[in-house]
Each structure stands twice: as C-alpha cells, then as structure tokens.
Simulated scan of single mutants.
Amino acid sequence: MNLTIRLFATLRENRGKILDVEVSDGETIRTILGSMGIMEEDVAILLRNGRDASLDDFPEDKDTLSVFPPVGGG
C-alpha cells in the first residue's frame, strides 16, 4: 500500500518534506511513524486526508498523512 506522508516543522529534519512510502496492509499510523523514528510525543496534530486522525487508525492505499509537531516558544 502506498502513502504520502507530509511532515512539518522540526519533523522534516533529516527526513524531508513530502515522502511517498510503501507500507504493509494492517499497519497502524503509530507503527508507520515509529518506523520513521517519529515518536508519539513528537506528534501534536495528525491528519489523514485533511481530517483529524488517531495514531491507532489504519490508513488505506493512497492516503495522505500530515504530521505536525508540538509548537514551542512563548
């Protein structure tokens, strides 16, 4: 199954901005991101095809995941 993963801000470092990846059916978003070195605490906003998603969701072929880290500053 093919996914597009769009990474934002600090998550792009050493990974890139837009990634086309192939993953096995039945993998959760948590597992997919974990294999990329992105931990749960690194994800503040997660969208699947532009809608709110959960790390425990199972993506489908051709989905686009957008992953945003927590925002720092003040």
Rank of each mutant, 00 (worst) to 15 (best):
Met1Thr: 10
Asn2Trp: 05
Asn2Ile: 14
Leu3Ala: 00
Leu3Lys: 09
Thr4Lys: 12
Ile5Val: 15
Arg6Met: 09
Arg6Glu: 08
Arg6Ala: 15
Leu7Tyr: 07
Leu7Gly: 00
Ala9Asn: 08
Ala9Asp: 05
Thr10Cys: 14
Thr10Ile: 01
Leu11Asn: 07
Leu11Val: 06
Arg12Asn: 04
Arg12His: 11
Glu13Ile: 12
Glu13Lys: 08
Glu13Val: 13
Glu13Leu: 13
Gly16Trp: 11
Gly16Pro: 10
Gly16Met: 11
Lys17His: 09
Lys17Leu: 14
Asp20Leu: 03
Asp20Trp: 14
Val21Met: 09
Glu22Arg: 03
Glu22Val: 12
Glu22Asp: 14
Glu22His: 08
Glu22Trp: 05
Glu22Ser: 13
Ser24Trp: 02
Asp25Pro: 04
Gly26Tyr: 05
Glu27Leu: 13
Glu27Gly: 10
Glu27Phe: 04
Ile29Arg: 11
Ile29Cys: 05
Arg30Val: 10
Arg30Met: 07
Thr31Gln: 13
Thr31Met: 15
Ile32Lys: 04
Gly34Tyr: 06
Gly34Glu: 12
Gly34Lys: 12
Gly34Trp: 11
Ser35Met: 06
Ser35Phe: 00
Met36Thr: 06
Met36Gly: 10
Met36Tyr: 01
Met36Ile: 07
Gly37Pro: 10
Gly37His: 03
Met39Ser: 14
Glu40Asn: 07
Glu40Lys: 14
Glu41Phe: 10
Glu41Leu: 04
Asp42Glu: 08
Val43His: 13
Ala44Glu: 11
Ala44Tyr: 03
Ala44Pro: 08
Leu46Val: 06
Leu47Arg: 02
Arg48Ser: 00
Gly50Met: 11
Gly50Ser: 10
Gly50Leu: 14
Arg51Thr: 09
Arg51Met: 11
Asp52Cys: 00
Asp52Lys: 04
Ala53Val: 12
Asp56Gln: 01
Phe58Pro: 00
Phe58His: 09
Pro59Asp: 02
Pro59Gln: 10
Glu60Met: 15
Lys62His: 07
Asp63Thr: 12
Phe68Tyr: 13
Pro69Phe: 08
Pro70Trp: 10
Pro70Thr: 04
Val71Tyr: 13
Gly72Thr: 00
Gly72Cys: 02
Gly72Val: 02
Gly73Pro: 03
Gly73Ile: 04
